[in-house]
């Protein structure tokens, strides 16, 4: 996912803003605007819930609907 997606993404539970943590980026020749996040976590600034980013795709299912994917 693009880091700019954080502008409009919200926590599915309480609709508060999310922060990106532990991000790893794809190689983008130093162009940080185009930075593609490959993995990491989105953390709700209010409730603190963590949402994983797998293979560049954020999983924003409410935690009770999320199942851990096999490694």
């Amino acid at each position: 996912m693009k880091e700019s997606l954080l502008d409009i993404l919200r926590c599915p539970l309480d609709k508060h803003e999310l922060e990106l943590e532990n991000a790893t980026y794809a190689d983008t020749d130093g162009d940080t605007d185009a930075a593609e996040v490959v993995s990491g976590e989105l953390v709700c600034t209010d409730c603190g819930e963590h949402y994983p980013i797998d293979d560049g795709i954020p999983n924003l299912l409410p935690p009770d609907m999320r199942e851990e994917s096999p490694a």
């Binding site: 693009k2 409009i8 599915p12 954020p58 924003l60 299912l61 409410p62 609907m65």
Partner: peptide, 19 residues
């Protein structure tokens, strides 16, 4: 690059108001 996919549920959309 302008196209993104995400996992989420119809019951609680992970987007802000008026976005």
């Amino acid at each position: 690059e302008q196209v993104s996919y995400l996992v989420g549920d119809f019951g609680s959309l992970p987007f802000g108001e008026n976005t």
